[in-house]
Design a protein around this nucleic acid. Structure first.
Length: 579
DNA sequence: GCCGTTTTCGGCCCGACTGTTTTCAGTCG
């Protein structure tokens, strides 16, 4: 009776059960219970896999008796009889069908039952042979839309990196604000909440002419094609496949629509149930109900009407922010303007595009007062990592810069030193001691098991010369999964050894993940927001870094690069154990 | 299937839009 299932396995089995129950036409509330169970498993703050294995799940909201038993069976045996029975003979490809826009459980069930379709490939062939239009509830247009959705799915990713989404959003938002009938406009959704990747963009405009605005949106030159177009909402795809939704509402409704479409869904559910207890019903258009209706002009008025402090959009994930808003204990979050410098940046010495001088000038232009250079070490030969000799030369070069231009920008000499497979470092301690600081990162042997990988990283953190840990999990968003590492143990070790943990704010990484920062912060772990810039423009990533740090509940005092130059120099001069 | 300051039974969000209908079911957010 032992197995090694992951948290994600537990959650995705519950999700798959929900999908299969939908196909069977089960009670929608039962289906929702499984979905919420999956979400609870994903976001639970504790080792829920061990708890499931030990049968200690009682008392977790959203996991009742039935789900407790199922999770226990899954965690101990690795499979779940109920799930296996439900799955029956559906092949793995069957579940792809739900990824097609416009296809829901009812339509999937129909094509499966009537035409025996169990893959996207089969669906395409049936559409091309006009077999679908013969089914009741289907027609020519449905076939056409399905074919388009299949083609789009093959051509484009279904999620986008934060920088691409933020760029598109700023362009479209500017376009909306240009319109003379727009009173207020903002983007909402997961971008406003600074999620690590974005599935679509949501825009809210306040206007007295909603139909005019949805027409304007549909006819923008940025619009590749229109998905839906009504009097108050319009959805389009951009050329790059990114879906954008517009909601046009009255000025009075605007704060409610902005709040509602910013989400998260979980945050909104909690907010609405709180409203109900006060005799108020809350939806995307306003308050209603038996109690006196509060006056609302801004989003923050909605929160204060419910007896809550204003909750920053980044925190709206129903992970304790509503309780903190009620108690008046929400953190004062770090902001981008508070960042005085940055560590972990590359130059042409290793795999950067711009020279030390170009990077320095760009940092000055951005208003930074210090800049950490951390080029790769020799084992990262694919990145032209520096050997001992070249690193010593770079230290001299930096020293020369500081003598000449130190008034405008202090450069710190560092290294992004490889953590080798056994946890030792790519340079000797004697060389590391000559640096101002050092970032230690894993760049190879990604497939070690969790225990070995965790031990490897811990050994590196125990080195007194390792100032900070680079991109903890090595994930590349939308491209490469994180390697196996025990976050809890790393966080404990970072607290103990006074090792700073990097928030790598390259939008392809955003690593360590925002979900872990509050726990790390509460244990006294400090964060360094690092752009991992390989070219001057990438200093702009610091903005995403501050957004994601906010999402992780971080305050100014938790982030070392909010220190001014004098403070950070004094900090780095201290022995590691006293920092 | 879950939950409890309306409750251990009876709720659980619902409005906008589309396509296929001929008054509405399905999907999405």
């Amino acid at each position: 009776m032992s197995s090694n299932v992951s948290r994600e396995t537990l959650a995705s089995v519950l999700d798959e059960i929900a999908l299969l129950l939908e196909i069977e036409g089960e009670n929608p509330f039962k289906i929702r219970a499984y979905r919420q169970g999956a979400e609870t498993v994903r976001s639970y703050d504790g080792d829920i896999v061990a708890m499931a294995r030990e049968g200690e799940l009682e008392g977790i909201k959203g996991i009742g008796k039935a789900l407790q038993d199922k999770l226990h069976e899954l965690a101990t045996t690795g499979t779940l009889g109920f799930h296996q029975n439900l799955r029956g003979n559906y092949p793995e490809t069957f579940f792809e069908l739900f990824e097609i826009d416009g296809l829901g459980p009812k339509k999937v069930a129909a094509v499966h039952k009537k035409l025996g379709i169990d893959s996207i490939d089969g669906l395409r062939k049936a559409c091309e042979a006009s077999e679908l239009a013969a089914l009741s509830g289907f027609g020519k247009k449905t076939e056409q839309k399905i074919l388009e959705a299949i083609a789009r799915r093959e051509q484009f990713a279904d999620r986008f990196h934060l920088d691409a989404a933020a760029h598109a959003a700023s362009v479209i938002l500017a376009r909306l604000k240009e319109h003379p009938d727009v009173l207020r406009a903002q983007y909402a959704g997961s971008l406003r909440r600074s999620k690590e990747t974005v599935g679509d963009l949501d825009f809210i405009v306040a206007t007295s002419k909603p139909a005019e605005l949805t027409r304007y949106f549909a006819e923008m030159d940025l619009t590749d094609h229109v998905i839906v177009h009504g009097d108050t909402k319009c959805s389009i795809h951009l050329e790059n496949g990114l879906q954008c939704d517009l909601r046009a509402v009255s000025n009075d409704e605007y704060p409610f629509a902005l709040q509602y479409f910013t989400g998260s869904k979980e945050h909104n559910v909690a907010l609405r149930s709180r409203a109900l207890k006060q005799g108020l019903s809350l939806n995307e258009y306003g308050f209603s109900g038996s109690s006196e209706i509060p006056e609302v002009h801004e989003e923050r008025d909605i929160y204060s009407a419910l007896g809550l402090d204003y909750v920053d959009p980044a925190l709206r994930e129903n992970r304790g922010e509503i309780e903190a808003a009620e108690a008046g204990t929400l953190p004062e979050l770090v902001s981008w303007e508070q960042l005085c410098g940055t560590f972990h940046n590359h130059t042409t010495a290793s795999d950067g595009r711009d020279t030390l001088h170009e990077m320095a000038e760009a940092a000055i232009d951005l208003g930074l007062t210090y800049l950490g250079i951390a080029d790769h070490s020799k084992s990262s030969f694919q990145a032209r990592g520096l050997d001992e000799e070249r690193l010593l030369t770079q230290i001299e070069e930096i020293s020369a810069w500081n003598s000449e231009h130190g008034e405008s920008l202090r450069i710190f000499a560092g290294s992004e030193v490889d953590i080798l497979k056994d946890g030792s470092l790519d340079f000797d301690d004697s060389l590391l001691a000559q640096l101002d600081y050092c970032v230690a990162s894993v760049h190879n042997a990604f497939t070690l098991d969790e225990k070995t990988m965790t031990q490897r990283i811990i050994r590196a953190m125990e080195n007194e010369h390792v100032t900070m840990l680079g991109h903890l999990t090595g994930r590349l968003l939308l491209k490469r999964d994180e390697y196996a590492v025990n976050h809890d143990k790393i966080i404990d070790c970072a607290a103990e050894t006074r090792t700073i943990v990097e928030l790598n704010c390259n939008p392809r990484r955003l690593d360590m993940d925002w979900r872990w920062w509050k726990k790390a912060r509460d244990k006294g772990v400090r964060c360094s927001i690092n752009p991992d810039a390989h070219r001057t423009e990438q200093f702009q990533y610091l903005r995403f870094g501050a957004d994601v740090a906010r999402k992780g509940w971080l305050r100014k005092q938790d982030v070392i690069n909010t220190m001014n130059l004098e403070e950070v120099e004094a900090f780095l001069a201290l022995p590691k154990s006293s920092r």
